[in-house]
Design a protein around this nucleic acid. Sequence first.
DNA 1: TAAGTCACG
DNA 2: ACGTACGTGACTTAT
Length: 723
Amino acid sequence: MNSIAINAQDTPGLRDFYEKFGFKGLAKALGGDTDVPAAPASGKQKARPASQAVPGLFDDPASDVSESGADAGSRGATPGYDTVLTWEAFDLWLARIEAADLVALDTETTSLDEMRAEIVGISFSVTSGEAAYIPLRHAGPDAPAQLPLDEVLARLKPWLENPARHKLGQHIKYDRHVFANHGIEVQGYVHDTMLQSYVLEVHKPHGLGSLAERHLGRSGISYEDLCGKGAHQIPFAQVDVAKAAEYACEDSDQTLDVHRVLWPQLQASFPRAEAPAVPEAVATPASESQPSLWAAEAPPATAPWQPTTPGFPQLPSLLGIYELEIASSEVLYRIERNGVLIDAPTLAAQSHELGQRILKLEEEAYAIAGQPFNLSSPKQLGEIFLDKLGMPVVKKTATGARSTDEEVLEKLAEDYPLPAKLLEHRSLSKLKGTYTDKLAQLAHPRTGRVHTHYAQAVAVTGRLSSNDPNLQNIPIRTPEGRRVREAFVAPPGCVIASADYSQIELRIMAHLSGDEALLHAFTAGLDVHRATAGEVFGLPPEQVSSEQRRYAKVINFGLIYGMSAFGLAKNLGIETKAAAAYIDRYFQRYPGVKRYMDETKAQAKAQGYVETVFGRRLVLPEINSPNGPRRAGAERAAINAPMQGTAADLIKLSMVAVQRVLDAEKPAIKMIMQVHDELVFELPEGEVDWLKREIPRLMAAVADLKVPLLAEVGVGPNWDQAH
DNA sequence: TAAGTCACG
DNA sequence: ACGTACGTGACTTAT
């Protein structure tokens, strides 16, 4: 990658980066082909007067003090935006941030890679329309003399590390990493505008530029305005200090103002209008009825994590979800920082072996085809298969081309020799190209560990995603692929442990639907697929064949995805009519599930969104589309979203609860990965007994549903053997 | 940059 | 009659 300085997710511009890192919504919003209305004025219209600030959101008089002589440094083009170049100016600003109840904070850096990024400058805002930029490492030809980075950080460190001094940012996980790269562990990050937006409007873009446009009606300097794009782009440190200051001050200023719009919306979400009665056990004293993330002191480290939102998680609310996201953000920072140790020689050996086999398969394929061709080119494949070898067209792709995907090749393999070679080639190339060749390259040079990035505001269901590298799609389903996991190892004296929720989404379906038969299966601790097969095939569970159980498992998965008879038939390789009969039979036996699906669709159509058990809103923009297939797709998503989303809530609750206990009692145990329903740990061998006992207990206890939650642990020298 | 394919839960 | 299981990220080819 290039070495462009920028604050990763919070900066306008950088479509390529957003694409690459999976922030597709952001990339789209920034790219012009967007549903975000055009900015009222192009380019340079910036900070509005302070008088336009949303009034009355801050109770604290101190933060409304907006005079002060803080512009003692050189003055920027915008009134209220200062560039701090002298100690006198720095002292004034330090006094301001030390006195303020809440400070918006942002870093400008040398790199998009949060583990390697170094600070180029820091900006603050404590009052709408006012901000300061401290340039520290600008090196352009006309760069002025700047304050020394190390001394500035040393002066800021006590404030940054004081949990009682509250900070706010856009994508605070990134800035945590940046400060940590300079030896500072920031405490007191209480708000993140990106997460506010994600909780309030999950389906919309969450970049700061988008938020400023949507919520402030304001457009700012884009990164491309500042640094150019493509080959002409320059590092942030080369940007003219005056322009960089405008840009950086604007970021902090906008962050504070966006917060002033979104935070009240979150507060107003509690209690929900349609909130259920608070259960006795979590009933909240009246004195605590004002939700607050503002407690001056963090709770004692020995206590398990307790949200300050009253009643959450048993009492659902967006505010509680937001607080969960803020807490999760810090846990994710810890996981990313820990990284996972990769055994590079093992991967290299696997790559070599795969390379040999791929070469052999290529030769065999050429021999069968009678000519060499590119096995990775679907287009060339189509030509060879159809035009030269006369194979039939099995199905077409979305764009009308002749498909050569796995399903098609399996079918063709029944009658021709070439497709089987190709299937094996595909699978081995995938392993080599995506995993065995790549993972070691992404290891941090100093630690030998890979540090993934968890995107917390991408998946519309509330799940995380993982990128660069994606550690949530490491192979496991085939024996060959699974071997990649042998390279996920622990240092000497340590082992890997994996704790995963059992049947989490089906359990949630039982809870949400209240279906008696399904609830009973889980409450009684039955094998749920066997129980389903018993119902669908009309047999006592002990007489269910393994084939019947396999069918039931596919049916259960299909239900979670809102399947059709057609889809089930295709998956089982049976007639659509037979599949429809199974589905009918299922719904007869589990009428509560049927009712739940119908009600969920109706609710989605009526309000445009569905909710998780804990109150996360999952928006379905196309649920009332006039386009039939799109609407049908949204209906399936509506059925799936509460289950997938509730599972996401549960594991986030677990991550937060587990990290609190580890910090208090077991600092030697590191959480190193999350894979949707699984948490992975690295721990000293001596802690194995504790972990096997306590982690499943914690994971099962994070919520009280109508079914028991079950978590299972495995331990081994590597991730493969930890299962 | 889009399309096709395939890795995971 | 139509399309047909949810949610992600990464790689390769071809435009």
